[in-house]
Nucleic acid binder design. Structure first.
Lengths: 222, 222
DNA sequence: GGCGCTCTCAACACCGTGTCGAGTCACTGT
DNA sequence: ACAGTGACTCGACACGGTGTTGAGAGCGCC
């Protein structure tokens, strides 16, 4: 798996005290044990309710030892999110480039790829949304991801307008921003099963339909 | 000011130890002092970074005395949000009832009313969004508000469809849910001035345009 | 002058974080 | 064989936060 967005949490702002290379075998195992413990516990309760001690115990180490591997529990979550974001990008690929050929199909595939990734990593997704408020690093990672989606969408809209397929009712960037924020919020509500929310299986078709209407207006393609 | 949604935070789940009625004059003043201190401090930093001691000191009382007035700092925020929600409802009124006569105008007024309220209470809005994750009471209050918006929107869409003004491309409730979640997220991003986001003054027109396209499709009114 | 009520706070018990410093252990070069 | 080095480990601590307890102060009212 390639890490497209940032280095793993080990590279987070507070530099961890080591530069492990060719570590003793157990080292990487412990790191992975912390990560999987975090994923498990996040399935049960929020990061806020998980203590560093819980994470350490789950990985079979003491609390101080935890700090050898991660600067904080937020850094653990950051690593988890990073993996997830990389997966979302991989699943989605460069699908937006074929936009003009089959807008509805491309939109559907791209939306579904991202949504499936989030759905598949429910715990990390919900924790990420929570932690955005309190962790600068997590917020910035998320902003970078969203910004990239908005850039791609803006470009697609402008291309469609240039070839006369879509009307210019709003600035392309404003429209792209609002639509992507909608996706984020609706997907989150569905994954969190919160109220009000769209049923998990109706999310993609709902979002795609709104995108098509908003982008093409009266000229909506089949 | 009428409290439309819930009792003030005093009624929060952890019952506070008193039932104040006709209290000594200083009592209500202190309660208000805590509230205004909270509003001020939230303008500078997040609830997470504000301690009960900060709130107490700001109101000129000791920390234990704070607990005489509120069960926790979350309860203070709940009271703040409650006031804000009441204000949003008041500003907005029953505007949705005139929907069919002038969809675009009504939508614009309703969206602007809610948005202006949030914008006016920037600190409480941002704190509310943060705290939704950690406080059940705040989440439930918010869910109730959103649910009411979705109900009203669903009804408006169904009415428009019944009179043949709008096509039924999606279940009305799914559409209403997605549009309201979009509003929430886009307004939040604008108030938080986060990236990516729509410029503060373009929020309302962007949202209204997307609503009109999504609800009316090819039949968009003027 | 004693009662009940609102209101106040010092002192306490508790829990979570992050750090420090003193170790252990495996490997590497000599 | 053995000292050195760097990865790794954890007991003990300092600190900062929360929420509670118990002892009162001030006041109105009979």
């Amino acid at each position: 798996m390639v890490c497209v967005v940032s280095d793993v949490a080990t590279s987070s702002s507070t530099p961890s005290p080591r530069s492990r290379r060719a570590a003793r075998v157990t080292g990487d195992e412990r790191e992975r044990a912390i990560l999987t413990t975090a994923e498990t516990l996040l399935g049960e309760r929020s990061l806020h309710e998980i203590s560093v001690d819980d994470l350490a115990r789950g990985a079979g180490i003491s609390r101080p030892t935890f700090y050898f591997y991660f600067a904080s529990k937020e850094a653990v979550l950051l690593a988890l999110i990073d993996r997830m974001v990389a997966e979302a990008h991989e699943r989605r690929g460069d699908v937006m480039e074929r936009f003009a050929q089959d807008p509805r199909g491309v939109l559907y595939d791209a939306t579904k790829a991202v949504y499936d990734t989030f759905r598949h990593h429910r715990a990390a997704t919900l924790a990420a949304a929570d932690a955005r408020a309190s962790s600068t690093e997590i917020r910035e990672l998320w902003e970078r991801v969203m910004d990239q989606f908005v850039d791609e969408t803006t470009l697609a809209i402008e291309t469609e307008r240039a070839r006369g397929a879509a009307p210019a009712l709003l600035p392309a960037r404003d429209l792209a921003t609002a639509l992507n924020l909608m996706n984020e919020r609706v997907m989150h509500a569905a994954v969190a099963r919160s109220v009000p929310g769209v049923a998990e299986d109706d999310v993609v078709r709902t979002l795609v339909a709104i995108w098509i209407s908003a982008i093409y207006g009266a000229n909506a393609p089949a």
